[in-house]
């Protein structure tokens, strides 16, 4: 099996878990998905498939074409947990298709909110590289299919919030110290004035799991892809610096050291582990790695674990439905086995 994108480690991997670029595109001669027939949706999907397969790009061979209707609910939800598709795409699967690269770095959702959503994922801070990949796929598909575009409004999308570049760039950040200093709300407030957004990746409001946050651009019209990405990167680098500094301070306290080593010990020994607890403990261990209290710097292992312990993904890899307790047991076992060498 090909190495998945989240098994590689990336730049600023201590704070930036992953980067993502998403482009919203629509075909010129079809109504948007809310007014398209199932027949039209199928036709669009087959045209996208053909365009990818017939391209001479090296990409062609690595894609699988999935009719969402043929997946079980569990398989679909697992794709959501891995951030490859949206919850909306998983819940209503009629007329929807997915093209997925073998390393799960590239997913093309067909007939989600727009005809085509190109999404490229990568570890660490890698927005420029990801944009280049997304841009190449975009050009390739545009040449074959002809995208709806207007000189004034840019790429035309079903919802006007995506007009212009149709690009959403985002970073998944691990911010335990910033969170502990209660600075998240203030930063989120400032970001929204700059046309950017910060929100919890799992859970929301005051109940964000694993200190994981998603930062993305909100404005797509009037600001070029390049500028949107640079803005995001500039803010991110300030946040990374701040987070690392605060975490360094925090790790000098006996209380934080205790939390980190206790978390490592529980991960190594527990027999039952809920998802929420695992997310919290993995977050603490990551903080231990960043500050050097835990010697390893194997962030990619932690990234992989965060994916594999999610409920639907856990059940999919076990090939069966499981009760919550069976899941907690399988999760604890997986973590014990995989993290054994780590500390």
């Amino acid at each position: 099996m090909a190495e998945k994108w989240y098994e590689r480690s990336g730049e600023h991997g201590s704070v930036v878990i992953s980067s993502r670029i998403r482009l919203a595109r629509n075909l010129k001669s079809y109504p948007f998905p809310n007014r398209a027939s199932l027949e039209q949706k199928r036709e669009i999907a087959l045209r996208v498939k053909k365009a990818i397969e017939e391209s001479n790009s090296t990409l062609a061979g690595s894609f699988s074409f999935i009719s969402m209707e043929e997946l079980t609910q569990l398989q679909a939800v697992s794709l959501v947990e891995k951030h490859l598709i949206s919850p909306e795409f998983a819940s209503d699967r009629k007329g929807r298709y997915l093209m997925l690269s073998e390393d799960e770095a590239i997913s093309i959702m067909i007939n989600e909110e727009d005809h085509i959503r190109i999404q490229v994922l990568g570890s660490g801070l890698s927005l420029n590289e990801l944009y280049n990949t997304a841009n190449n796929i975009d050009t390739l598909l545009d040449d074959a299919l002809g995208f709806a575009f207007n000189e004034k409004l840019g790429y035309l999308t079903q919802c006007p919030t995506n007009l212009g570049t149709g690009m959403r760039a985002s970073l998944m950040l691990h911010l335990p110290a910033t969170e502990k200093n209660r600075a998240i709300a203030r930063i989120a407030g400032n970001l929204s004035k700059l046309g950017m957004e910060l929100r919890g990746t799992f859970g929301e409001g005051s109940d964000v799991k694993g200190s994981l946050y998603q930062m993305s651009n909100q404005i797509t019209l009037g600001i070029s892809e390049h500028t949107a990405i640079e803005n995001l990167k500039n803010i991110a680098s300030q946040m990374i610096e701040q987070e690392e500094k605060s975490l360094e301070e925090l790790s000098k306290t006996l209380e934080m050291q205790d939390i980190i080593f206790r978390s490592a010990a529980v991960l190594k020994s527990a027999r039952l582990m809920t998802n929420d607890e695992a997310m919290k403990l993995l977050s603490n261990v990551r903080a231990g790695m960043v500050t050097g209290l835990i010697e390893s710097k194997d962030y990619s292992l932690l990234n992989r674990m965060s994916e594999q312990i999610q409920p639907a993904t856990l059940m999919t890899s076990n090939n069966r439905e499981m009760t919550p307790q069976e899941r907690d047991s399988a999760r604890a076992e997986l973590l014990r086995r995989e993290l054994k060498e780590l500390f």
Partner: peptide, 12 residues
């Protein structure tokens, strides 16, 4: 929504 009404960025 955007504070702008004119596209700036990639042209196909």
């Amino acid at each position: 929504i955007h504070g702008n009404t004119r596209h700036n960025g990639k042209f196909p």
